[in-house]
Design a protein around this nucleic acid. Structure first.
Length: 133
DNA sequence: GCCAACGTTGGC
DNA sequence: GCCAACGTTGGC
């Protein structure tokens, strides 16, 4: 499956991901987002999206390398482990996504606050092709 | 910095 | 179980 992970670059950025390579995707405190993480499988690919900045955009691709694990002291929530794969040739901006007729149903536009969301294979490939222009 | 959307909390 | 109050996210 394919996913989109949001992050505020001031707390965790694509550049951080490139430098650290592997990270626990933790800190999610929303049940819907958590359930999406629970549904992730090894080798699933995710876009990493920069939110809450002037020009929000998708920066790159990470891969799930560790299944969902609960936190020891907060068992209702947990994390998956992801590994850096590659940057997008050109980042894809929220503006581009908003104006793209093939992406009108993407959860990013409908549920602005959801931080971990599934993408259809069609949406995934459409975004990839936008990044290759 | 503002505000809309929306999830959570807590009183009843 | 309802709903008002409140806090957080995130686009602009």
């Amino acid at each position: 499956m394919h996913w989109l992970l949001k992050s505020e670059p001031s707390s965790w950025s694509w550049e951080d991901q490139v430098r650290e390579k592997i990270t626990k995707w933790d800190g999610v405190r929303n049940y819907q987002a958590r359930n999406n993480m629970k549904a992730m499988e090894i080798d699933d690919l995710c876009f990493l999206y920069h939110s809450a900045i002037k020009e929000p955009k998708i920066m790159g691709i990470v891969k799930v390398i560790g299944l969902y694990e609960p936190e020891i002291n907060e068992p209702n929530f947990g994390y998956v482990s992801v590994e850096c794969v590659e940057p997008l040739e050109n980042p894809v901006t929220l503006k581009q996504i908003k104006t793209d007729l093939e992406l009108t149903h993407i959860p990013l536009l409908r549920q602005s606050r959801l931080s971990v969301m599934p993408l259809t294979s069609k949406e995934w490939h459409r975004i990839l092709s936008l990044s290759q222009k």
